[in-house]
C-alpha cells in the first residue's frame, strides 16, 4: 500500500519501509525547509528504512539541497537505514559531485 503526501511540486510517497521524495522543481533554502518538515514528520514514525530522493522534475539545486540530503543521511544512518538519489539531470549531478556527496550517497540507476 502506498501513501502520498505533499503539494503538486514537492511530495513524498511511502511504500512499506521505503520513502520516495519528489524533490520538486527547485530545491533551494526556501523549498528545503518545506520538504524537510514533510519528510521528517514521516521519518519520526520510525517505519522507514530506505529514503530515495527522486530528482526527475528538479532543474535547480544549491547547497541547501545538499544540506537536506546530508541531514536525512544522518537520520537514516542512526537507525541503520539508507539514503539514495536518482534521476539527476547534468546540473544536479554536477552539484552532487562538487559537494563530494557522491562519496557517501549511492546513486540508484
Amino acid at each position: 500500500m502506498s501513501q502520498e503526501v505533499g503539494t503538486e511540486e514537492i511530495g513524498i510517497v511511502v511504500e512499506d519501509d521505503t520513502m520516495i521524495i519528489r524533490a520538486g522543481g527547485e530545491l533551494d533554502h526556501h523549498n528545503a525547509v518545506e520538504l524537510r518538515t514533510l519528510v521528517d514528520r514521516e521519518l519520526i514514525k520510525g517505519k522507514i528504512k530506505n529514503v530515495i530522493f527522486d530528482f526527475t522534475d528538479t532543474n535547480f539545486m544549491d547547497s541547501s539541497g545538499i544540506g537536506t540530503i546530508i541531514g536525512r543521511q544522518k537520520i537514516m544512518e542512526s537507525i541503520g537505514g539508507s539514503v539514495r538519489v536518482r534521476n539527476m539531470n547534468p546540473n544536479i549531478s554536477r552539484i552532487f559531485q562538487i559537494s563530494g556527496l557522491h562519496k557517501i550517497i549511492k546513486v540508484q540507476e
Binding site: 547547497s63 541547501s64 544540506g67 562538487i98 559537494s99
Partner: peptide, 13 residues
C-alpha cells in the same frame, strides 16, 4: 538548520 557549509565553496567553484 542543516547549512552544509558549502555556500562560499560553490560561489568559488
Amino acid at each position: 538548520e542543516e547549512r552544509a557549509g558549502m555556500g562560499f565553496m560553490f560561489m568559488e567553484a
